[in-house]
């Protein structure tokens, strides 16, 4: 028995998707005609199945209830708290200072406060960050109690796979002013900008190329990993 023709799967479907004219074979080949008909039936079944995927009946009310619950917090909405879990845990974070010693404005070595904030900046001013666009700048601020270049690293990835910023962990340090470390990152392209903070007792691994690979490498090195909330640029 002859093998069934697979030209529809191999090329006919894609040609049709591209709006190209099919050659005469596809009008005469029984296998191709059957495969094409099966595709049409599958397409119809997808539509039919999707029509059954309905949200819960009260979902609109639930959305407004959530909005009402979250409204008070929105007073501070131009800040995105990147690492609330860390803040809640009161985890001490060590960071590298570009100059030695604790001069005026340096972090208090005994302080336990830790804060990271992010916003969109325009010149010297922080402006709204509710709907950041390509070309906006992301500002990251971390109030740190002390510094150790080997024990902490902050990295920001776009879509979890493009490293756009790294500091700490022996890499280029962030700037230090007043009592906070600051970094500004130009968000040049749409995507989800997500931060990752690595803390460990020893040297941290270098960036591994993707957020997941970074997290895995850090865990393998015994470091703790905390992911920040994604900032969506659209």
């Amino acid at each position: 028995m002859a093998e069934p023709c697979t030209r529809w799967d191999a090329e006919g479907r894609l040609a049709t998707e591209r709006g190209e004219t099919l050659d005469a074979h596809f009008a005469a080949c029984p296998d191709c005609l059957a495969a094409r008909a099966a595709d049409a039936a599958l397409s119809a079944r997808l539509v039919e199945t999707g029509a059954r995927w309905q949200p819960p009946g009260d979902w609109e009310a639930r959305v407004f209830a959530r909005i009402a619950r979250e409204a008070p917090a929105r007073r501070f909405s131009w800040w995105y708290a990147l690492f609330p879990a860390l803040a809640a845990a009161g985890l001490a974070v060590f960071f590298f200072a570009p100059r030695g010693g604790g001069g005026p404005g340096s972090p208090d070595p005994s302080g336990a406060g830790f804060e990271v904030q992010i916003g969109v900046v325009d010149g010297a001013q922080v402006v709204r960050s509710e709907n950041p666009k390509p070309g906006d700048t992301l500002r990251l601020t971390a109030r740190v109690p002390t510094r150790d270049p080997a024990r902490v690293a902050i990295r920001i990835y776009r879509d979890d796979r493009t490293l756009i910023f790294a500091c700490g962990g022996g890499e280029v340090p962030c700037s230090l002013a007043d009592d906070a470390v600051r970094a500004e990152v130009l968000m040049t392209a749409p995507g989800a900008y997500r931060s990752i903070i690595l803390t460990g007792a020893g040297p941290l691994p270098a960036p591994a190329g993707t957020l997941d690979a970074d997290a895995a490498a850090a865990r393998a090195a015994g470091a703790s990993v905390t992911l920040g909330e994604a900032v969506r640029v659209w």
């Binding site: 997941d212 997290a215 895995a216 490498a217 865990r219 393998a220």
Partner: peptide
């Protein structure tokens, strides 16, 4: 998983 350091 049993291995906390396992990659993701």
């Amino acid at each position: 998983t049993t291995d906390d350091d396992a990659p993701e």
